[in-house]
Design a protein around this nucleic acid. Structure first.
Lengths: 226, 226
DNA sequence: ACCTGAACACCGTTCAAGT
DNA sequence: ACCTGAACACCGTTCAAGT
């Protein structure tokens, strides 16, 4: 309880603050990362944090950069398959974001200007260049792919959050299928007709298909449509 | 200030609660819709709301359904252009979500099981059927398209929120371009190379291109990839 | 059944005062 | 310069008590 019972009483700094926040994020998701809880973990009052961090939003930005840094970027060689690497990179990004409930949502807010987020964007662009796309197609494509990574990551974390909360026994798919199947056919003819197909496949299969669709679409679409 | 100065002192009900919440949403975005503020607008205490609404999440769900109801669904005729209608429907959806800061994000959380959200899904499926897609392709495609609508809507509202806050003078594009242009070329070669293209085009142009890409991709992709 | 005052357990952020 | 106690202005939700 007293000072000397603690490991090493780290001096306050932006890094130690982000470290502490990361521990809380791991345990309780972004909702668990409050200024007060971070301060408590560091054995101070919340006001002390504001010396090293402008506000909670900036702290979240720093967490995002940490997470973005864990995504392994592809090593581009002379005869690597750009398409397979692109898919792999996107799946890695989605998985990384999926690990931390609430973080991906926060990425919608700002242009990703943190070092690790920029590195990811640059890597995506590099792979698209290998794909032989026009300059404008590459530029617009990276926007779409980045949006998808964030969106798919968000979906994953929020489903996970729900899952732990209440209905982990009946998995989401089964639940959704029954909802779809039980709908009035006159009102929603297309949904009821396809209720089996709508819930078919694992999350990874479905994500892979979506990524495939986008790559095929990018290759097939001129960068300046009518 | 007293009772008789007010219009008609509406009796409390789920509908009046959602009405009041909608007014707050319009004025201040989802952050402005707190149980306490809604109660205040209805001249009661927050506890009273819990008779008609399980919790804030359910209230938000009701708001989402209201907004989904404002999206005009396409009237399918014998010789209408399914592709153009699909694009139009998606743009309408994105615009509807874009009007209310914070709402689109909330849609990631749950499978959209509200009447109006289901109607939108059914309409999308109908158009995809007209496009001659296989059953499985339609089912997976509607997932991807719905995810994009929510993601693009989220992006729009959050940018709008930021915009009103601080930097409305220098628009986002100009800001982003300068950020990209000023980056170290050794570290981010692809971004700096394409910094002009990365910020080229209006939001609608870019969105249209993305939708085009997805439709082309869906048409080109078998529903059961390796 | 419906409504409510009061409380519980939290938030982010600021600011004057201390060292 | 860094740190902090205390306060300000909020939250969602519950619950006993009233009508």
């Amino acid at each position: 309880m007293s000072r000397r019972d603690r490991p090493a009483k780290p001096a306050l700094s932006q890094e130690t603050i982000v470290d502490a926040a990361m521990v809380l994020l791991d345990a309780d998701g972004l909702d668990g990362v409050s200024m007060r809880r971070v301060a408590q973990a560091l054995d101070t009052g919340p006001a002390s944090l504001y010396v090293y961090v402008r506000n909670r939003d900036e702290l979240i930005g720093l967490l995002i950069d940490r997470i973005a840094g864990t995504i392994t970027l592809p090593v581009v060689g002379p005869d690597t398959d750009w398409r397979e690497q692109l898919i792999e990179l996107m799946l890695n990004g989605i998985k990384a974001l999926g690990r931390y409930p609430g973080v991906a949502v926060a990425m919608f807010a700002n242009v990703p200007d943190s070092p690790n987020a920029l590195a990811l964007t640059d890597a995506l662009l590099g792979l698209l260049t290998q794909g032989g796309l026009s300059r404008q197609a590459r530029a617009w494509a990276v926007d779409l792919l980045a949006l998808y990574i964030v969106a798919a990551g968000t979906e994953e974390t929020l489903h996970a959050q729900r899952g732990t909360e209440e209905l982990r026994k009946t998995d989401v798919h089964r639940g959704a299928r029954e909802v779809f199947a039980g709908l009035p056919a006159e009102q929603y003819p297309n949904i009821t007709d396809l209720h089996e197909e709508l819930t078919y496949g694992t999350a990874e299969q479905r994500t892979r298909w979506s990524i495939d669709v986008m790559i095929n679409g990018i290759l097939a679409t001129d960068a300046k449509p009518s």
